[in-house]
Design a protein around this nucleic acid. Structure first.
Lengths: 246, 246
DNA sequence: TCAATAGTGTCTTTCAGACACTATGCT
DNA sequence: AGCATAGTGTCTGAAAGACACTATTGA
């Protein structure tokens, strides 16, 4: 390899690229992993798949895979593709979280993974994609499952980011169905933050920022009907100047 | 490659790993790039190097390079190593920003880079490391230099993150020398935020959060001597509940 | 009419913004 | 004394926290 490099010193760029072959170098394994969150029965769930190949065969893991150098224009495209394959959802909230890499996290060798998280309305997921080997699992239970590789830590990372963002944005709206009551939304916030919120302060914050609007419909859950709201679509960008206490 | 995969289906994990060779696969090029920031004459500077190899030879670029699969335990280690090579600084503030990857950003092929940013006191940088091909350049001027690859965008990304963090934390303290006046610190904040700050509000915020403490010394810049402060070391963790207006 | 859930009024607290004011040392 | 820079006092305003209160429905 050293000889290769020395040989390249005198070349111009075109000649250099002609001789360049990435397979001459030791490179890390490179994957994209997805933490896809959804709310089921007021609980935060993450979509996990059972690995059907070595290594860590049959263990639960975050969905993910390799970058397709032919098809994917950039890394976000890889993430969108994976998400599409696993859920069929068209335009989810998707955000890159962090890249984790080390010589020990994967038995195949030095590997890095680019971790993304996605927030989706579970109702939008195609039914046939939820199977014995591809399931929603409550984040609290995922801990006890002994996930593949360092995916335990990746779930914690993603969950931490979601929690942090929930203190200063309205991102959890992305987890809701088209129409929802503010009580339902507050419960989702409370689930993520793992603490109760003041009802008045919560509504005031969302309404003042114009993040939700009434649909005109209401929902009866036995007692007084609750007004139904829809997202105004501003939730992906809004950050409140003051964040909720932790 | 398909045949390889099929052949592996029946194996156990040990056999699988024995036959596994990453060079069988198409993998992206993978690098780590550093946006190292420092303050010189009240201006935000970034450390740039002139590339002395193809591709993009002789263009200015962010310092960076490949992961050393033998030496680096994890990606952070790669970043620390690069930083040490370029500055000699021992324990800088270092944080991963984002990973950028696409098929077009590097002429050698599909490539990803893990971008970090570091904040350092420029006085701590070893003199002999600042040369004709490794220089501090004001962020405002870096724009006009036509950086290599997509490094223009990477600098903007790093700068944006620094600016955002400066509205809700006291991170810029990491750019200061051991002792500094609050006026100097405020000027650094103003440089990063590209706007003036209220003197009273600035001091109140920092002092109330116990982020700086008096050293007992003072500094005469011609007129009334200004008290010198030092960091209490809390600046890396503190986030204010209320962020500064943009 | 009462239980249960939905939703409002309003006082308090916290902290940033604004700006007039005082303090100190050099010339 | 005057000036330039360092630093304080204090009022205002915005938004979160707390909590008592009212509203709407079904049984």
């Amino acid at each position: 390899m050293l000889i290769l490099l020395i040989g390249k010193l005198a070349m111009n760029e075109k000649e250099f690229l002609k001789k360049y072959d990435i397979h001459d170098f030791d490179v890390p394994l490179c994957t994209v992993d997805m933490a896809i969150f959804g709310i089921i029965d007021n609980e935060l769930n993450v979509l996990l798949v059972r690995r059907d190949e070595h290594p860590e065969k049959d263990k639960w893991a975050l969905p993910g895979g390799f970058i397709d150098l032919k098809e994917d224009k950039n890394i976000d495209a890889t993430a969108y593709r994976k998400l599409q394959e696993k859920t069929g959802v068209r335009s989810p909230y998707l955000e890159q979280i962090q890249t984790v890499g080390s010589g020990t996290r994967d038995s195949r060798g030095w590997s890095i993974t680019v971790l993304y998280f996605a927030l989706i309305d579970v109702n939008k997921v195609k039914d046939n994609l939820i199977t014995e080997r591809s399931r929603w699992i409550p984040v609290s239970k995922a801990r006890r499952l002994g996930l593949a590789f360092d995916h335990q830590a990746l779930v914690a990372l993603a969950n931490g980011r979601l929690k942090a963002k929930t203190t200063y944005s309205a991102l959890p709206i992305e987890l809701m169905p088209k129409e929802f009551t503010l009580t339902e939304l507050q419960t989702v916030f409370e689930t993520i933050l793992e603490r109760d919120l003041q009802l008045k302060a919560f509504r005031r914050r969302l309404l003042a920022a114009d993040l939700v609007e009434e649909t005109g419909n209401s929902k009866i859950a036995g007692k007084r009907p609750a007004k139904l709201y829809r997202s105004t679509g501003k939730d992906r960008n809004t950050t409140f100047s003051q964040s909720l206490k932790i």
